[in-house]
Structures are given as structure tokens and as C-alpha cells.
């Protein structure tokens, strides 16, 4: 617990120190290069805008209509047994399929429940802890003409499911609730 807290506290300050300092040692024009990279911040934000709007609209309608409540009640026996909040399931399904789609769902969960709620913290942890498995496999195998994936998809999904379960357990232990 203590270690996790210290990692969270120190991660950003340490990187803010090390990266510019290392760049300076390597004779990089630190400020100019920083600004050059920083310009991409605006394009990144605008690039994700349509994805966020699309996914937020769909999931908000799904939630506001009461359909989400039906789904959560329907899955309650399973989710209660596993100790998983039902609200998080759409994110778990979307995460391996689409990075921007999952980001939209995470944004909605944080917005809806608050960043410091259990669901907000769990969604934050889940969003950061796995990658878009299907996208990566398709692009990488496709680039060299591999048709038979063998156990690659199984391994990728095992990674996703285990990070998901680990996120739930770790957040429960660490944040409580």
C-alpha cells in the first residue's frame, strides 16, 4: 500500500525532472523541442473529440433511458458474486476492441460517478492497464501476412481479463469500498 502511494506521488515529479535533465545532458535544445512536441497536444485533443462525442452520446442514452439499470440488474447475480460493480462492464467489453471507444466510456464513468468514487477510480485503473488487443493483433499480423494467429488471441484476452480482475481487487484493497 505504502509503495503504491509513493509511486503515485513521485512518478510525475521524477519524470518531469529526469526527462528534461537527460535531454539537456544529450545536448537537446530542451525548451524548443518541448514546444515542438507540445503542439501535438492540441491535435490530439481535437482528434479524440468525435470519438468522445460518439461514445458519450450512445452510453448516456443507454444510461438515461434506464436500459443500463436493466442490464446491471440482469447481471447482478454474477457481478455481485465476483464483487464487480455492474456499471464497469461496458468498459471491460470495449477495452480490447477500441482504444478511443473505451476512453469515451471511461470519460463518461468518471463524469457520471466522479473521479474519486470507487467506479471512477476503477475505470481509471482499467483504462490504463490494458491495450486494444484486437487492433494490435490485426495491424501487426496483417503487416507481415500472418493468417493463422494460433494462441495469440487467447493470450491477449487472458491478459485483458486478468488485468481487469486485478484492477478490481487492487482498487478494492487500496481504495476500499
Amino acid at each position: 500500500m505504502y509503495v503504491l502511494t509513493q509511486i503515485s506521488r513521485w512518478a510525475i515529479p521524477v519524470l518531469l525532472f529526469i526527462i528534461p535533465f537527460y535531454a539537456y545532458l544529450k545536448k537537446v535544445n530542451v525548451y524548443e523541442v518541448f514546444v515542438e512536441g507540445a503542439q501535438e497536444g492540441i491535435t490530439t485533443a481535437f482528434k479524440i473529440l468525435p470519438f468522445l462525442v460518439g461514445m458519450l452520446v450512445a452510453i448516456s442514452v443507454f444510461r438515461a433511458s434506464g436500459a443500463m439499470d436493466y442490464l446491471i440488474r440482469f447481471l447482478a447475480p454474477a457481478t455481485n458474486f465476483l464483487g464487480i460493480p455492474g456499471e464497469i462492464l461496458p468498459l471491460a467489453v470495449m477495452r480490447p476492441l477500441s482504444g478511443s471507444g473505451a476512453l469515451g466510456i471511461t470519460a463518461e464513468l468518471i463524469h457520471q460517478f466522479g473521479p474519486d468514487s470507487f467506479i471512477g477510480r476503477l475505470a481509471s485503473t482499467m483504462q490504463g492497464s490494458t491495450d486494444t488487443t484486437f487492433y494490435v493483433l490485426t495491424v501487426y499480423f496483417g503487416s507481415v501476412g500472418i493468417i493463422k494467429y494460433r494462441h495469440a488471441i487467447t493470450v491477449g484476452l487472458i491478459a485483458d481479463v486478468s488485468s481487469f480482475i486485478a484492477s478490481v481487487i487492487i482498487c478494492r484493497l487500496y481504495f476500499g469500498g
Binding site: 510525475i12 477510480r121 486485478a166 484492477s167 487492487i170 487500496y174
Partner: peptide, 8 residues
């Protein structure tokens, strides 16, 4: 959430 993310 940095620590929990790294551990997960």
C-alpha cells in the same frame, strides 16, 4: 491511480 494501474 498511477500505482494501481502499474500493479494491475
Amino acid at each position: 491511480i498511477v500505482g494501481t494501474t502499474i500493479l494491475a
